[in-house]
């Protein structure tokens, strides 16, 4: 069976039957941040709790990345195989607006305010054969 590894530790619960994005929430002012931060950007508080973010939200804004970025972009693609990809901010109620790649890259199929779910999927394969898993937002 192929090994699956998260693209970074602590971004989302992994492994898990139902993964979720992880945020920190300030004990002092209640503001949440993604990814988890050790201190609060809003009030400078240094005590935070880690919590799971909601899995469904609404698209706040978006764009399509039409050309292949230079490194540190690392998707395993070549200029020949590169596929444009969507990027957006999704407002997760009670939490934060999280920036992420979208599963959709057709501008005709994206509109501000549409419902989006967070999904976790293979992003690239590393030289050792492992699948590197990241989070994406997918239109509901």
């Amino acid at each position: 069976m192929t090994e699956k590894r998260p693209i970074a530790e602590g971004l989302f619960t992994w492994p898990s039957p139902q993964p979720a994005l992880l945020a920190s929430r300030c004990r002092q002012c209640g503001v949440a941040a993604f990814p988890v931060a050790e201190s609060c950007m809003a009030c400078s508080g240094q005590e935070v709790d880690v919590e799971e973010l909601p899995r469904r939200g609404t698209l706040w804004t978006w764009t399509i990345q039409q050309f292949m970025p230079k490194p540190p972009y690392n998707s395993g693609e070549t200029p020949e195989t590169f596929q444009p990809y969507g990027v957006g901010y999704v407002e997760l109620p009670g939490g934060v607006r999280v920036e992420g790649r979208l599963t959709e890259n057709d501008p005709q199929k994206l509109r501000i305010g549409m419902a989006m779910d967070v999904v976790f999927d293979a992003y690239r394969r590393d030289p050792d054969g492992a699948e590197i898993v990241s989070y994406f937002f997918k239109p509901v």
Partner: peptide, 9 residues
């Protein structure tokens, strides 16, 4: 984190 650049943001 490095992941932010790796995924192309």
């Amino acid at each position: 984190g490095d992941w932010y650049g790796e995924v192309g943001m």
